[in-house]
Design a binder for these strands. Sequence first.
DNA 1: CGATTTTTGTTAACCTGGTTGACGGAATGC
DNA 2: GCATTCCGTCAACCAGGTTAACAAAAATCG
Lengths: 139, 139
Amino acid sequence: MAVADGLRPTLLRLGRELRREKIAGVSPQQVGLLVSIKYAPGMTVGALAADERVSTAAMSKRISRLERDGLVERTPSEKDRRCVGLTLTDEGQRVLRRVRSRRTAWLATRLDALSPADRAALAAAVEPLTRLLPEEEGR
Amino acid sequence: MAVADGLRPTLLRLGRELRREKIAGVSPQQVGLLVSIKYAPGMTVGALAADERVSTAAMSKRISRLERDGLVERTPSEKDRRCVGLTLTDEGQRVLRRVRSRRTAWLATRLDALSPADRAALAAAVEPLTRLLPEEEGR
DNA sequence: CGATTTTTGTTAACCTGGTTGACGGAATGC
DNA sequence: GCATTCCGTCAACCAGGTTAACAAAAATCG
């Protein structure tokens, strides 16, 4: 299918480009995690891993890095002491707030350079794109 | 800008998803390289690196892996012996041919699951998406 | 010409982020 | 009470990125 052929390389390239730009010393992926934790404090490692469709081991490592940087905190759960609940530290909140404004800088700039028609086409494509993702909790 | 906010996480997730699926033991990135080399045999490491907007060191490593797997060959250039020209091996050609049909399998399947309207929206977005990429040689 | 500078690619050391497999400890199920 | 299952971590590994140092070839300058 022609659409897939055109879409694939572009998505790969864009993904790499986006992954590259870190803001305030935090990678986009880490920012995504911070957002998730912010809106669901106390979330477990496993849940986050499922959300991102990644192994728990991988998620554990990502969390460890965030913890090392003082952005999140692991607090053993009361009811099930196998689980650890994740929460943002004050620093984490600060970083998130600071990053919010700049996080889309690169992309926004590129979008601004497009014609209105192109922008409209992209806006219309956002929804379908999310539907390409493996479902499992429509976040 | 709302578009950027919606687009970013989706592009990141899709990029990861696409990067994940390797076909015939070759990653999508590697396939991309193979394609580039196929259509411009004799290409140098530096040129490829510029193309993919990556350091020459990174590209050198990627090439080394492909060489290790017997898919490409480095042949020192005649005219400028600092450069190495890259060409596909027979095995590389075979792999590429074999992969061609399957390379968009995952994405094509997901696309098939969408409504015609969604598919149309995505088709219309392909061009604008490529325009988001840092230019420098329109691919 | 010869000395210096620039270019090209490789290597080393380091980081992120992914995998699988082993394992300890907590919750569950007889 | 004991076996099992589930959760998170750790270790070992891999791909792919970065920067910095380097060798060798090419280009430039005096």
